[in-house]
Amino acid sequence: MKQTKFQKTVVIHQGALGDLVCTLPALNALREVSATVVGIGSGRLKLLEYAGILDKSFLADALGFHRLFLPEFVPGGNLSAVFSDADLAVSWLGRKSGAYRQNLSRLAAKVSVFSGPFPPGPGDGHACAVLARPVIEAGIPVSDLFPRLSLPSSPDEEERMPAIEMPFIAVHPGSGSRCKALPLKQLFRLMDSLSGLLPERTLALIAGDAEKSLLIELVKNLPDKLKPRTRILENLELTVLARSLCRAELFVGMDSGPTHLAASLGVKTIAVFGPTSPEIWAPPQPWVRVVRSSYPCAPCTDDRRRNCPEALCLENIDLSGIISAARNLLAGGPPAGS
């Protein structure tokens, strides 16, 4: 039986999709002890509202949320209405602003603001554990550090699903930055290998705004033999993307938001890591396999990654390791780490 500790909790999160998914263990723990949970942040929170983790979400800009960072903040308006009767506010925003913390304390009976290192560095622990800290500091245990997301059945959403031949393999070749994306030469070789492994499957390429330039190059250079098997799913709404991923037989992606999302939905996932650290960022679920670069300088620091002219760690990804991981997952192999 659910034990309600808080009547109303307000969560504040403006992070990218991958960061949001890594915060799911903390958010699910809050859901378990709160009668009502509302969120303030970006439009990505609509996914959590759809999944029932939030009862309602609000865009920060629409509420004039920036006023909380002002020393002369005066409560009132829609912002105060959202916080009305809030027992607890947990924020993953504003850790460097004393004014923000003080003003937030005027709106909620108890406040916990994330103050840890972000992005986490070597020795800081996995991102899911780091992002759980403000909830733990609020006195709420976070015992399950696997991001989990369950979607409701929705006939309305089914009508909005993209037409795609079943079964299919979802591939996300990009990431938040081009320096974490799989080079096209490697991508085409991977697609060809996946086609050989599963010849009857459609290859569904996931692409969003971050992959716009990559997608242009991909379409221009896609080998003829791959064209009949390839379907591009471009700029899907987040709830539609999530429902689409649930149908995938396998997901292959880089260190990216869609990769974390697929894993949180229970999809068999292969996460490919080049310049970033899988010890910090790899989805931790047992239905995930991690393929990492063996290049000597990988993983590297954020500054080095941003200024790297060649991304040799991604050029040298072992594609045979990805195919072996795919075989293992599809054959129902043992959980990762066993």
Rank of each mutant, 00 (worst) to 15 (best):
A248K: 02
L312T: 11
L245H: 10
I317H: 03
V267D: 07
A282K: 06
R231C: 14
T230D: 04
I232D: 05
P228S: 08
L236P: 09
L314E: 14
S277D: 13
D303E: 15
I322M: 12
K268D: 10
E249P: 05
P296G: 07
T301G: 14
R304Q: 15
G253T: 01
K268C: 08
T259N: 04
T276M: 04
G253W: 04
R304Y: 10
N307D: 15
L245N: 07
R305P: 03
S320K: 13
R247M: 11
G253R: 01
N235K: 13
I270C: 11
L312S: 12
S293C: 00
A263M: 08
P283V: 01
P228Y: 09
T230S: 06
G321V: 09
Y295K: 10
P296V: 06
R243I: 09
A248P: 00
K227Y: 00
R305A: 02
E310N: 15
R305H: 06
T269I: 07
I232N: 06
L236G: 14
V288P: 00
E249L: 13
S256T: 08
K227W: 05
N316K: 15
L226F: 05
C297G: 10
S320T: 12
T276F: 00
H260C: 00
R292T: 08
P309K: 09
I317V: 13
P258H: 06
P283C: 09
I322D: 02
W281V: 04
N307H: 06
L245M: 10
G257N: 13
V291P: 07
A263W: 02
I317M: 11
P278Q: 02
A311E: 15
C308V: 05
